[in-house]
Design a protein around this nucleic acid. Structure first.
Lengths: 209, 209
DNA sequence: TGACGTCTCTTACGTCGTAAGAATATCGTC
DNA sequence: GACGATATTCTTACGACGTAAGAGACGTCA
């Protein structure tokens, strides 16, 4: 019953810590309360419901992704993609959330606005630039999703196990790729770089919208 | 108590119907049982747990995506992407699942194997080809995710509402893009086509793996 | 002191996944 | 048709979840 000095921010911070430590499945209002030395229902004074906590987590992550749009647009757009990826890999438990929920909170919108504005200054139309931002963002999210944190729970994906037990007779190409290093960290990094380059290479302002 | 003639397949089919109709959040073992005129626990005779139902749903969807790899590889790879997108849009409730869970079941692996093999015949390395398949697949999933079915529940995403209430002073480019048609079906289609073209245009076999 | 707004707790309801095992239905064999 | 084995279904129960409703405790200012 003594006051603890809570706030929406502290609740979100504790939620992020809990999620980072035990995975998204472990985030329940009761556990989050316990984390803060408080009963579950107390949290409802700072947050309307659990969904708001999840949305808050997303906005925290998205807000941390910032890029200064100076120099050649392909370069800072690439830096934007890399920044997203770094943030996602730092909090892989958030991936299912980011992939699943739209970015509607203030932090995310502000970032999108800034990038889109810079692209328009480069000759893209407003709609065109936004489409570009979206293409890059969804690409990064999709790719990072494939790379890490696939399982919604906290347990490791058993990809490795299944892969190793592949019948080389039935899946010869898969087996060969596995021997060639599929799934290693270097593989993921390289795959990301190559595909991102491909995407950026293929993009250009259309002059007319 | 009379036997109903259930089977794993029928359970999965009912699950898909239920999910299509009421969204992924409405899929509970009890409701799924009711759907089949059976108690919840009965399902556990055909399926080890709920996760297996979800995995089964994914594999059903993925298995339906098939492409004949004949002709120029960029063309049938494009057809592959379009086929994935069509299947996902036909069952948008599955999107959060497909995005979140790895493709490890037989159906998905077989498809991947076939595409990767065809790519190798085009001069890609085994690993390289698989990376390509993965890049295209994650791109499509990411993009479709942004297009539809964002909310995990069955209720419509309130994107439209939030967008309309945007302060044009604070988000001028976003507002302009909105007026230019952001978020319309044509916009999504065009965005998908353009980004996919960009991605494919940027990709090419590297000759050496 | 007392009253008031801020914050926290208790209790309760309906839902979920599923473990354990009892009850029933169906079928092969006599 | 009766009987035992096997395949299928049901009943009951437990602990966890999100959260509605309202009671209670705290700090502050009169």
């Amino acid at each position: 019953m003594p006051r603890v000095g809570l706030s929406r921010e502290k609740v979100l911070a504790a939620a992020l810590a809990l999620v980072d430590r035990e995975g998204i499945a472990a985030l329940s209002m009761r556990k989050l309360g316990a984390e803060l030395g408080v009963e579950a229902m107390t949290l409802y004074y700072y947050v309307p419901n659990k969904d708001a906590v999840l949305d808050g987590l997303i906005d925290m992550a998205v807000s941390r992704v910032t890029v200064e749009p100076v120099g050649p647009w392909r370069e800072w757009l690439r830096a934007f993609a890399v920044a997203i990826r770094r943030e996602l890999l730092a909090h892989p438990a958030l991936l299912p959330l980011v992939a699943t929920r739209p970015v509607l909170a203030p932090g995310g919108l502000a970032t999108v606005e800034r990038i889109a504005a810079a692209l328009r200054a480069e000759g893209f139309g407003a709609l065109e630039g936004l489409q570009l931002v979206n293409a890059v963002a969804t690409f990064v999210v999709g790719h990072t999703l494939a790379e890490a944190g696939r399982t919604p729970g906290h347990d490791e994906p058993d990809v490795a196990g299944v892969m190793e037990s592949l019948d080389p007779g039935e899946y010869p190409v898969l087996a060969e790729a596995l021997r060639a290093g599929l799934g290693t960290p270097e593989d993921h990094q390289e795959r990301f770089d190559r595909a991102l380059d491909a995407l950026l290479r293929g993009l250009a302002p259309r002059a007319t919208l």
